[in-house]
Amino acid sequence: MKQLLTGLLILVSLQWAFADSGIQFFKGTMAEAQALAAKEHKIIFMDAYTSWCGPCKRMAKDVFSDAEVGKFFNKHFINIKVDMEKGEGPRLAGKYRVNSYPTLLFLDEKGEVVHAAKGGRPADQFLGLGKVALSKNDKSGEYAQQYEEGKRDPDFLRAYAYALLNSAKPNLKIANEYIRTQDDFSSKENLEFLFDFANEADSKIFELAVENKEAIIQLKSAETFKEKLKSACNETINKAIEYKVADLLDEAKLKMKTADPKYAKEYALYADIKYAAGTEDITAFTKLSDKYLKKYAKKDAQTLHQYARSVLMQTNDAKLLETAEKWASQATSIDYKAEYLRTHSAILEKLGRAEEAQKVNAKANELGGKQSKTPALGH
């Protein structure tokens, strides 16, 4: 099931651009990044690198591009890359005593170091580094004590909600308490709050964000707001999967229909695919995926290939594999890549069509692939 969910996560990044499938780096100066961090109540992640650093290049290629890394870092940090030998790099290198690369710095809005590490690391360890940085910047404990003592004024509740959000802790209870103190949501401060806390479709804050859609779009952008809607609906689907409550799936689709009617049909189909993947229903996943691909991605080789690969890794059912073989064949007819050919070959092999599999794999090898065998299938 892990491969199927991983495949679906990649598809999310390809089809719905929730987070560009990796870290989004801020294009601006450090001073501008600090101002944005203060505005968005976040800390800064700075990748201190050089153009000649090998580990830096590997981090950029293999770690910063990772979908899970992108989702976490885009949500919790203002991310910035600084070449230590260009522009303001030498000044920052001196200020933060950077003498090896990459140096991974986590800074507060004042530019003070919250956490730091040197050297490259794989995605899972890098995620752990980010979580440690959040914990070191966690101010929610101070607010929790004051809350227990009875403090409830709006400014306090707002600050407490952001402290929880920025520490990746449950925050909806306190955010809702703040919302209940407000009668007017037209102020910039409250519109920002609605946007920042509309993280689940099955919430009052999400509904208020949709009600104030036009004002938030003026403040952010139509595309940014649309991405927020999709992310919130996805979180509700994740809960539907985790708690096995299909009603939450229906609620996510309904909320998207209210929020973005033009996109509702496509999202509803995507939602069903995501739910089928999460509940390990490979038959429903394949059937729904076939419908989606015919309607929305019949000329998208990368997406066709990824769906085919997901089915390949999850089943030996001939009927389902035949559907996946069709997608794989379409992918190679659109974009003749060795990777796509090898997936096609592996599906043919599972279907018992050994001679065809060998011919397709030979074509993959002709394109420069070094391996003479099809990918391991885990059986």
Score class of each variant (00 low, 15 high):
residue 233 C to D: 13
residue 107 L to R: 02
residue 111 G to E: 07
residue 227 E to A: 14
residue 135 S to Q: 15
residue 17 A to G: 08
residue 74 N to P: 10
residue 344 H to G: 10
residue 255 K to F: 00
residue 283 T to N: 08
residue 191 L to I: 03
residue 110 K to E: 01
residue 52 W to A: 05
residue 85 E to Q: 12
residue 276 A to V: 04
residue 78 I to G: 07
residue 233 C to R: 11
residue 37 A to M: 03
residue 341 L to Y: 00
residue 257 K to C: 09
residue 62 D to A: 02
residue 285 F to S: 12
residue 93 A to R: 03
residue 76 H to V: 01
residue 344 H to Y: 13
residue 366 E to Y: 04
residue 78 I to D: 01
residue 233 C to E: 12
residue 186 S to L: 03
residue 65 S to Q: 12
residue 173 K to V: 09
residue 146 Q to D: 06
residue 338 A to Q: 08
residue 361 N to S: 00
residue 15 Q to F: 07
residue 325 E to N: 06
residue 228 K to C: 08
residue 270 Y to G: 00
residue 115 H to S: 01
residue 351 L to C: 14
residue 361 N to Q: 09
residue 191 L to W: 07
residue 259 A to L: 05
residue 291 K to Q: 14
residue 351 L to A: 13
residue 307 Y to Q: 11
residue 32 E to D: 03
residue 252 A to P: 12
residue 33 A to H: 01
residue 246 A to Q: 02
residue 313 M to H: 05
residue 135 S to A: 06
residue 29 T to R: 03
residue 225 F to K: 10
residue 203 S to C: 01
residue 165 L to H: 00
residue 98 V to N: 11
residue 8 L to T: 04
residue 98 V to F: 11
residue 64 F to H: 10
residue 320 L to E: 04
residue 181 T to W: 06
residue 108 D to R: 06
residue 258 T to P: 08
residue 187 S to F: 13
residue 161 A to L: 04
residue 359 K to W: 01
residue 170 P to W: 11
residue 46 M to F: 03
residue 118 K to N: 01
residue 154 P to D: 07
residue 88 E to I: 03
residue 299 K to G: 05
residue 140 S to N: 01
residue 258 T to W: 03
residue 293 L to P: 01
residue 289 S to G: 05
residue 228 K to S: 06
residue 292 Y to E: 11
residue 232 A to D: 07
residue 186 S to C: 10
residue 52 W to E: 05
residue 124 D to A: 15
residue 27 K to C: 02
residue 309 R to Y: 00
residue 313 M to R: 10
residue 127 L to Y: 01
residue 307 Y to W: 13
residue 296 Y to W: 14
residue 154 P to L: 10
residue 47 D to K: 02
residue 341 L to W: 01
residue 162 Y to P: 10
residue 182 Q to E: 10
residue 351 L to H: 14
residue 209 A to H: 10
residue 352 G to V: 07
residue 201 A to E: 12
residue 378 G to Q: 09
residue 148 E to F: 12
residue 332 T to L: 04
residue 24 Q to K: 14
residue 37 A to S: 06
residue 147 Y to M: 08
residue 338 A to S: 15
residue 95 K to P: 07
residue 36 L to A: 13
residue 160 Y to I: 12
residue 318 A to L: 05
residue 160 Y to N: 09
residue 246 A to K: 14
residue 324 A to W: 09
residue 255 K to G: 08
residue 338 A to I: 05
residue 100 S to W: 07
residue 314 Q to K: 04
residue 315 T to K: 00
residue 199 N to Y: 10
residue 83 D to S: 07
residue 213 K to H: 08
residue 89 G to Y: 11
residue 131 K to Y: 00
residue 180 R to F: 13
residue 194 L to V: 08
residue 139 K to P: 11
